[in-house]
Nucleic acid binder design. Sequence first.
DNA 1: CGCCGCCTTGAGAATATTCAAGCATCGTGG
DNA 2: CCACGATGCTTGAATATTCTCAAGGCGGCG
Lengths: 221, 221
Amino acid sequence: MLAVFPETVRTASAVACPVCDLQSPCVAQASKTFDAEEEIYGEGEPAEWVFRVVSGAVRVFTMLDDGRRQIHAFHFPGDVFGLENGADYSQSAEAICETRVEIGRWTVLDAASAQDCQTARKLWLLTAEALRRASEHLVMLGRKTARERVAGFLVEMQRRTGRQNVVDLPMSRIDIADYLGLTIETVSRTLNEFQRTGLIDLPRCRHVRLCNSRLLDAMAA
Amino acid sequence: MLAVFPETVRTASAVACPVCDLQSPCVAQASKTFDAEEEIYGEGEPAEWVFRVVSGAVRVFTMLDDGRRQIHAFHFPGDVFGLENGADYSQSAEAICETRVEIGRWTVLDAASAQDCQTARKLWLLTAEALRRASEHLVMLGRKTARERVAGFLVEMQRRTGRQNVVDLPMSRIDIADYLGLTIETVSRTLNEFQRTGLIDLPRCRHVRLCNSRLLDAMAA
DNA sequence: CGCCGCCTTGAGAATATTCAAGCATCGTGG
DNA sequence: CCACGATGCTTGAATATTCTCAAGGCGGCG
């Protein structure tokens, strides 16, 4: 996958830097569209690039040797991902659906942050925000029941991608399960239980209407 | 607790800045010793201070309304904690045993990082490292069995605080359970199972000798 | 229209929890 | 020095939640 990038890179002055929002020469620029299920980067590859989602959705995850998978985060338009502190990516990223991203070269961004404190601060804020989300996620996985996790997931999706009380899920049940530390069956059962009890409406399996946001919020704790 | 700090603050030039290791005027300085079980800061308090452990051990955690607790991290000598991106602490911190910490004033550190890119970078690196740990922790809570979690915990403690293959745990079984997303009974059973199978020796309940580090490592996956 | 993949549903099994009791360990005071 | 109580740890039995395995259904796409 990495080998593909250099060919697609163009110094498009129309694209803003994924991190600091400035035009070149802040960060070398490019943008690229990934197909659904296409790998963006893999764990262990050199962390050369930083990304910002323009449209679509991305999952960042870790695979264990035996095939178990934990999704660390979903990313939606506006979100930056691929910021690594080490030389290599420590996780993998894939497009969930057709996804367009802006791409910045890490060496350039790193150099910029060494000279400009505002850029360095932005870098820190992005990482701090990722840490805040990871911490909330941690509590969910460590101390919450399946119901609480699914409720929390719906509320989070609503807040980040929803309009009104409607959520269109780009990801499969497997993705949701691997994000919540559950199985697809438990996710499915819980969603359908929520529908039976009138908490949500589920006209299609990836289309959710939150009928009682307040209660869902309370359930998420 | 916060009200206590100003009284104990002294501009001791002998104490290095918790974050950047430079002497004043990098960050206003103080140090303080907390008793075992004493609160260092509480969730929701203004995040005025940043800390570095000198000796002892600290737990950082979140409490849910109904008393469930998730420990996000343990901190040992050399570790920095209390770095917040928002105005208030989003978690609580307590000393596990008698613990000495160095204290820096966040406003001063923030100002320093706005002028000095090296300091800003250090701040980022600290947060990125915290994120890396949280991500590993996340996989543990989401996708690993009790045995794998306990094995992983022992290996981590050995690496961070142990000498040779010996680990002296400063924290109780409850702390371990709340870190691993388990109950004290499960932690206790698992540790004693490890002893029965010869993986560890447990002469006292907080004193562990890793008899087969290699296998423990493999179990942690 | 039919196939394939994803989602749902059910039954049985497993892991971890809950509840309960007993046992060390440590500090205190007689 | 030993008895005592408190706290934390261990162990057992029963329970619960979630997982696994299996089958069936729905929907989208060719």
